[in-house]
Each structure stands twice: as C-alpha cells, then as structure tokens.
Design a protein around this nucleic acid. Structure first.
Lengths: 150, 150
DNA sequence: CTTTACTCTGTACTTTGGTACGGAGTTATA
DNA sequence: TATAACTCCGTACCAAAGTACAGAGTAAAG
C-alpha cells in the first residue's frame, strides 16, 4: 500500500480526469457521494480513490440508475460476512430492477421495429396512415391494404 | 363520421378516462401537445380524439420518449412518402439508443450476478473485497483467491 | 335555493442532476 | 512581482414533467 507516494489532485485535475465539471464534483460532495476531502490551505485534495469513485458513479448512471442508486451501491463498500445479508438484499433488488428494465426496453424495441418496418420504411408508398391510428391498430394499418379492422 | 353525436367531456372526465391529472391536461395544452379545446361557458370541452391523443402521448412516454419526442411524433400525423425519411431517422435513432441501453444493462446484470454469487452470497467467508474493486477487476477479485491481476 | 363538486386563471413549488455567477482568496507562471 | 489561472463559498438558475394552491366563477343534486 503505497499511499504516501500518491500525489493528490486538485479539484480541477480530478474533474478533468473524470470527465466532469468542477461544479459536479462539489455537487457530488454536497450529495454525500464523495467523501469529504482533505484540504491544503483551503483547497480540496483528491486521491486516485476519488477519481475511481466518480468513474464508478458515472458508470452506474450510464446504466440508467440514479445518483441515489449509485449512493446505495457505494455503501456496499465491503462484502464481509457481516454486511453480506444487506448486500445480498440490495443485489437482489438491483438484479430484479435491471431485469425489469431490460424487459421493458425489449418491449419498446419490438414495437418500434414494427413501426419502422410497417410505416416508417419499406411499406406505405402512397398509402397514408396516421401514426396515432397505427398505434391503436397494433401497427397493422400500413402493411394491410384492407385496413379499418374494426 | 358521426362527430355530432359525440358527447363532449369536461376536463375532469377526460383526465379520468386518460388516467392523468386535470392539471396534466392543462399542462399538455400549454405545451401545445393538445389542441385548444372548444368551450361552453368557459369550460373546456373535449372529444374522443383528445382522449386518444393523451393515450398516445402516454404510450410514447412509456416507450422512453420525452414529451418533445411525442410532440414531434404527433406532428408526423401521416407517414406519407414525404414524411417517411424523417420518421425513419427518428425511429432508427431511438432503436439504436434502446439497443445500446439493453446491452449495457445486460452487462451490468452479468456483473451483478457474478458479484452476488462470489461476494454477496456463497463465497467470501472471511475475504473482504470492495464492490468498487470488483467492478474494476472484472469481478475476478472474489472468486479468485490470488487476485490483484494487474 | 343552497350546497357541494367541479372548473377557471395565474403563479409558485417539486425533483433530479447539474451549471453559472459574484466576489474573494491562493498558487503557479512569466 | 505581477498576472493569469485556479479555488473558495453561497446562492441562483436551468430543463423536464408535472403538482399545488388561491380566489373566483359555474353546474348539478337534493
């Protein structure tokens, strides 16, 4: 553990490395997502750990989670036997959540592809159909020349 | 087209039918997402079309679009050959976006499941490892006793 | 005919995830 | 040493998508 050799970053350096704004770093600190840093003559000093943590947060965010989620994931700092029950719970919740999200997105994808094929792209050369109607008629309005199913 | 027979709804009725709040209807009107309704003695009167339109908006929203997207989709009232290129573009962008999101989430799921098995559950009786490290080390930190791969 | 339920307008407030700004102090470069 | 570039703090602001409220008018039921 050679943390003495580690040169500390200023907030601007950290922000640049992490690809976020300086204000964002301070915002994360206010939100409790970053530990309160040491200071040298008033200036915040950050270590590699803080950088990794911001990257972790950004990663979590990209996956569609909120900062609150990121916070709870960061709370699972160590998975020792003591923290395991909580950890397992949070993990399970997260897994279920992600599975649901994926299912939802797959549903959307199916619908969008249908729309793209039937209305937006290949079909409907001269045929006019309203998008509103397409939705309501399960996208059968365009492909099917004798529409008006109801 | 028997629009004369159609009995018009009041804003509350519309909102209830559409499953949204009264304020939401007025908000949509302000935003230009609903046409300006006729009035009888000051009260807004809505038709079936307005109801269908709100349902459309809600559906679009569920599919991960914003109100702005909904607006632009509503502008594409007809998918004629003329509007098709734009429509196709919007669709494609959305599809790519969703596909990327799903891929990311699947990655996350794999990671979380791995973590759950190796750290959060069966394994790691006395071993301590941080979630942060697990992420960074492609989850080899826990299963593999001789970790520190780099 | 009164009371309750609804509607009207306009403005203000909410949450999430940041951005921007003003006026001061500090550090690094020329 | 001067000057640019950075940092400090607190506050205010932004967009999205609503939600809430005050004070007024209207409509429908008993």
């Amino acid at each position: 553990m050679e943390q003495k050799l580690q040169e500390l970053m200023t907030i601007g350096g950290l922000a640049k490395e992490a690809g976020v704004g300086v204000e964002t770093v301070r915002f994360y600190q206010r939100k409790g997502l970053l530990r309160i840093p040491d200071r040298t003559s008033g200036f915040r000093k950050y270590s590699e750990l803080d950088l990794r943590q911001i990257r972790f947060i950004k990663r979590i965010q990209e996956l569609g989670f909120t900062l609150k989620d990121a916070e709870s994931l960061l709370e699972i700092t160590f998975c020792s036997p003591k923290t395991r029950p909580l950890l397992e719970k949070v993990c399970n919740e997260k897994i279920v959540e992600i599975e649901k999200k994926i299912a939802d997105l797959n549903g959307m994808l199916v619908e969008l592809r249908q729309f793209h094929q039937s209305c937006g792209c290949e079909a409907s050369n001269t045929l006019q159909c309203s998008l509103l109607e397409c939705f309501e008629n399960d996208w059968e309005c365009c492909e099917n020349p004798n529409r008006r199913k109801k």
